[in-house]
Simulated assay, not measured.
Amino acid sequence: MNPVPLPDPTAVLAETDWCALEHAYGSAEDTHAQLIALLDADQGVRSRALEHLDHAVLHQTTLYSATAPAALYVAGVLSDPRTAATVNVLPRTSPAPLRAELLDWLGSAANEVTDEAESISRHHGFPPEDYPPFGRIREIRPALFAAVSDCLGDPDPQVREAAIAACIPLLDDPHLLSRRTDLIPLLRETLVISARWQYRDRAIEALAAWGEDTTGLEVRRDPFGWCDTPPDLSTSGWDLLPEDRDGLPF
Rank of each mutant, 00 (worst) to 15 (best):
residue 41 A to V: 08
residue 41 A to F: 11
residue 43 Q to V: 10
residue 43 Q to E: 14
residue 46 R to T: 12
residue 48 R to Q: 13
residue 50 L to W: 14
residue 50 L to N: 05
residue 51 E to A: 09
residue 51 E to F: 01
residue 51 E to G: 08
residue 52 H to Q: 09
residue 54 D to M: 07
residue 55 H to Q: 15
residue 56 A to F: 11
residue 58 L to I: 12
residue 58 L to K: 08
residue 59 H to L: 06
residue 59 H to W: 11
residue 60 Q to I: 00
residue 60 Q to N: 12
residue 63 L to P: 00
residue 65 S to F: 02
residue 65 S to Y: 00
residue 65 S to H: 03
residue 65 S to C: 01
residue 67 T to A: 03
residue 68 A to K: 09
residue 70 A to Y: 00
residue 74 V to R: 02
residue 74 V to Y: 09
residue 76 G to I: 09
residue 77 V to Q: 04
residue 79 S to A: 13
residue 81 P to Y: 15
residue 82 R to K: 14
residue 82 R to C: 00
residue 84 A to I: 00
residue 85 A to I: 01
residue 85 A to M: 14
residue 88 N to W: 14
residue 88 N to T: 10
residue 88 N to I: 12
residue 91 P to V: 10
residue 93 T to F: 07
residue 94 S to W: 06
residue 94 S to N: 10
residue 95 P to I: 10
residue 96 A to H: 13
residue 96 A to Q: 15
residue 96 A to R: 14
residue 96 A to T: 15
residue 98 L to M: 12
residue 98 L to I: 11
residue 98 L to C: 12
residue 100 A to C: 06
residue 100 A to D: 04
residue 101 E to Q: 12
residue 102 L to N: 05
residue 102 L to P: 07
residue 102 L to I: 06
residue 103 L to N: 04
residue 103 L to M: 06
residue 104 D to S: 12
residue 105 W to V: 06
residue 106 L to A: 01
residue 106 L to Q: 00
residue 107 G to S: 08
residue 108 S to F: 01
residue 108 S to G: 06
residue 110 A to L: 02
residue 112 E to S: 07
residue 113 V to Y: 03
residue 113 V to S: 07
residue 114 T to D: 07
residue 114 T to V: 06
residue 116 E to I: 13
residue 116 E to N: 13
residue 116 E to F: 13
residue 117 A to K: 07
residue 119 S to G: 00
residue 119 S to D: 08
residue 121 S to D: 12
residue 124 H to G: 05
residue 124 H to W: 12
residue 127 P to Y: 13
residue 128 P to E: 14
residue 129 E to C: 06
residue 132 P to A: 05
residue 132 P to N: 01
residue 135 G to N: 09
residue 137 I to W: 02
residue 138 R to I: 03
residue 139 E to F: 00
residue 139 E to G: 01
residue 139 E to T: 13
residue 139 E to R: 13
residue 139 E to D: 15
residue 140 I to W: 00
residue 140 I to D: 01
residue 140 I to L: 02
residue 142 P to N: 05
residue 143 A to K: 04
residue 145 F to D: 09
residue 146 A to R: 08
residue 150 D to A: 15
residue 150 D to S: 15
residue 152 L to F: 08
residue 152 L to D: 08
residue 153 G to D: 08
residue 154 D to R: 00
residue 156 D to I: 00
residue 158 Q to V: 11
residue 159 V to K: 02
residue 160 R to D: 00
residue 160 R to V: 07
residue 160 R to M: 02
residue 161 E to N: 04
residue 161 E to S: 04
residue 162 A to M: 05
residue 165 A to F: 03
